[in-house]
Nucleic acid binder design. Sequence first.
DNA 1: CGCTCATTTGAGGAACTTCAAGGTCAGTGG
DNA 2: CCACTGACCTTGAAGTTCCTCAAATGAGCG
Lengths: 243, 243
Amino acid sequence: MGMIMANLDFCTTPFVEFDDTKIFGTADTVANFAKVAGDDASLQRKLSALQRGPVRFYQNNVIALNEDVADHLMFVITGVVRSCKICRNGNRSIVSFYLPGDFVGWVDAKLSLSIEAATDTELLFIKRKGLVSLASQNVRVANVMLTATTNELARAQEHVLLMNKSAKCRAATFLTDLWVRLGKAQYLDVPMSHQDIADYLGVTIETLSRSITDLERSGLIARVPSQRRLILQNHFGLRRVIN
Amino acid sequence: MGMIMANLDFCTTPFVEFDDTKIFGTADTVANFAKVAGDDASLQRKLSALQRGPVRFYQNNVIALNEDVADHLMFVITGVVRSCKICRNGNRSIVSFYLPGDFVGWVDAKLSLSIEAATDTELLFIKRKGLVSLASQNVRVANVMLTATTNELARAQEHVLLMNKSAKCRAATFLTDLWVRLGKAQYLDVPMSHQDIADYLGVTIETLSRSITDLERSGLIARVPSQRRLILQNHFGLRRVIN
DNA sequence: CGCTCATTTGAGGAACTTCAAGGTCAGTGG
DNA sequence: CCACTGACCTTGAAGTTCCTCAAATGAGCG
């Protein structure tokens, strides 16, 4: 089964695999936590003993504050999850988006982020300690955990790099990476709101809008009216902007 | 032994501990990789079999390109290491600083960063595969790895958050966190150059200089002339700026 | 249609960068 | 001891990017 690990947000290189077996789902589909176990039926049972759910959340529901995730990790099955922080002056920053196949909640407490549903979403809740102790008995589980954390680390580092670029570059990078993650389809249907994207990219919604309009005027992308749907037209040109 | 895990860069909450035993060194001292093993002599031997070094690098030496770190992880014993990227227009971004007790190189390949010595430094090179397989036999090693990666992830996420603040706030945050990490001594001796700090904070060196001068004029910090030495005078005021 | 919410557009202002020059300090050689 | 040098940091003035505030437009829905 050529399933792809949804390694998640949008400033990162496309697909990540664990071992030789690609696991989890693509971004626009459904991920399956049991696949962490591969064909090992006994391990599958142990894994499912750790999980609760799937639990459904609607757009903009708060799923957890990460003070609360000390006991549980989350696993995204469908939809998009965001982790964000609102600081005293009212500004919101989105630290990360999580797509199907991603684990949420590696980082507990330290920074107090809010885990929220960016779209309607379904999640599994997984007992953290159980998973950790399973990992110390099973190489496959340990590797999945290490891969998941280092992948998220890589994405966070790319995010830091992105914040040093111009607004237009940030927008072009975001859209291109999203398009790649969603399987390079003809149309790019953006699942999250402009406000979410703006808060992720560290610009205002007005600046984001202007950046996208700018990309459109340059012929790099086109918009299908009346939907959050785009077409990336000039990949070479986009690559030039991104760099 | 009340040793503190040097969890590294400067936008993060102060001290992180693993298990009940605090390991590694403080930032201004020397870290010891063998302490990962605790009192287990057999494990200590296995760990030291994986390591090469310590290897010494001088300031601004390139230690590795992270395409090269597929086989090896690094462990900082003394000094400060930076990971950075220079993009086509010549701008340099520093993604992270690593202090004694930190592991460098969890993220291989994906984003092509350069690992460099921000000060004179001593490193251990550790066989990645050996450590990973050791972790699947030993809970303690597995936990150290998970803690190290999630700590670095937390720092990277704080870094993202920091990039959405004003230049003055970024500078105040950086200096305060650095002061905490260095043990809250009377003086804060900044180990890295202003250029490095500026590239880490995503501002120009001029803006950084103006921000620091501004903090000084407000009486929040004071400078000891002729050295990279500061005194944080008004912690309450700094906290107000940081937020 | 009329409402609401999301996005777009415009004009002015603030924050930061760029460019250019000056200052400080440690090391070096006279 | 002093001048010279180079690395590093600071300061000033002008320019650019992005933000803020305000208003208009568009999309979805009863």
